[in-house]
Computed example of a mutant assay.
Amino acid sequence: MSDIADRAGWRIEKDVQNARAHVSKQALLESDGRCHFCDELIAHALLFCNVDCRNDYDKEQAALRRAGY
């Protein structure tokens, strides 16, 4: 039984390491009062003006990563 628990613990640790490595590669966005996708004026604490812009930005960034940029 400990074999299964050991493998599960090892897998969880690897998943966490992979997730941390992925996050550290991504550039962090800073709030500058404009939507990062459509450049609309927004409150300074926000990054995007709405969910659609956030989703479009994520899709665009994913496409750029797939293209190697």
Rank of each mutant, 00 (worst) to 15 (best):
D6V: 00
E13W: 01
C53Y: 00
C38I: 00
Q17F: 07
D39T: 03
I4A: 06
W10E: 14
F48C: 01
D15E: 15
A21V: 00
D56W: 07
F48K: 00
L64G: 00
D15T: 11
C38Y: 01
D52E: 14
A5R: 10
E30H: 13
E60C: 05
R7H: 04
C35V: 02
L28F: 12
A8D: 05
D6G: 00
L46Y: 14
Q61E: 13
I12E: 08
D32S: 11
V23W: 06
D58E: 13
E13Y: 03
A45W: 14
S31P: 15
E40D: 07
L29C: 06
K14L: 01
A21R: 10
L47G: 05
E40W: 04
L64P: 00
V16C: 07
G33V: 03
V23T: 09
I12R: 06
E30F: 06
A5D: 05
G9D: 06
G9Q: 05
V51T: 09
Y57A: 02
C49D: 05
R54S: 07
R34Y: 15
A67F: 02
F37H: 14
R54K: 11
I42A: 04
A67M: 04
V51N: 08
E60W: 07
L47Q: 05
A5Q: 04
G68H: 10
I12S: 03
A63M: 09
N18C: 01
S24V: 02
G68N: 02
Q61M: 14
D52F: 03
C38G: 02
L29R: 14
N55H: 11
S31E: 12
D3A: 14
K25G: 03
C49L: 03
L29F: 04
A62E: 15
L41E: 10
L29G: 09
N55S: 10
V23Q: 09
D15M: 15
R34I: 07
A27M: 11
D15N: 15
R66H: 02
V23S: 09
R20K: 15
R11G: 00
L41R: 13
D39H: 05
D52G: 05
V16F: 05
Q26K: 15
C49M: 01
S2D: 12
A67C: 00
V23H: 07
S31W: 09
D32C: 11
F37K: 12
D3Q: 13
D52A: 07
K14D: 02
N55V: 13
A43V: 08
A27V: 15
D6Q: 03
H44Q: 12
